[in-house]
């Protein structure tokens, strides 16, 4: 059987985390190709429904990356995301899906190696979890 290649969406903030992703690229730090990166201005703008939408559209995992607490360009958007996004994880859990399919991490502008590491780890996690059932079971 063909190896399972998960579909992963990474919603990253424009300031720190996107810079880290870019730095990972310039530094030639390789990370899996499965990740579709979508740049948002700040994690604070990541609406719960975007995450649900991603799962409903067939994502196997959703990664959210933002600035470290205190570093958010918009003062505390990341802290608000820090409250909101785990809530979405809870919803997933309530419906019987693995909460590990959603991950929130703070990645600073210089943390290219960390970006690579988190991405690789996340893809591994999702690979062990297997394909997401959200789409099939939630869309009737």
């Amino acid at each position: 059987m063909e190896q399972f290649e998960p579909k992963i969406i990474a919603l990253v903030c424009n300031w720190c985390t996107y810079t880290a992703a870019d730095l990972a690229g310039t530094s030639r730090l390789q990370y899996p190709a499965n990740i579709r990166m979508i740049r948002m201005m700040c994690t604070g703008m990541i609406d719960s429904k975007y995450i649900l939408k991603a799962f409903l559209s067939g994502a196997d995992g959703v990664f959210v990356g933002g600035c470290h607490p205190g570093d958010c360009h918009y003062i505390d958007g990341n802290l608000k995301a820090g409250k909101r996004i785990p809530g979405v994880g809870k919803i997933l859990e309530q419906f019987g899906f693995e909460p590990d399919r959603l991950k929130l991490k703070w990645i600073g502008a210089s943390e290219g190696p960390e970006f690579q590491k988190y991405m690789t780890e996340f893809v591994d996690t999702i690979k062990t979890l297997g394909p997401s059932q959200v789409r099939d079971r939630m869309i009737l």
């Binding site: 969406i9 979508i38 201005m41 609406d47 429904k49 360009h73 608000k80």
Partner: peptide, 30 residues
């Protein structure tokens, strides 16, 4: 920053260039 849009319970607040339909379509098509 768009926090207002993310927190608005009715989707009454929208952020220019990051309107829901745009972001959603981007997610879907990716």
């Amino acid at each position: 920053c768009g926090t207002c849009a993310a927190e608005c319970p009715n989707n009454a607040t929208v952020l220019g260039e990051y309107e829901d339909h745009g972001v959603m379509s981007m997610i879907e098509s990716s």
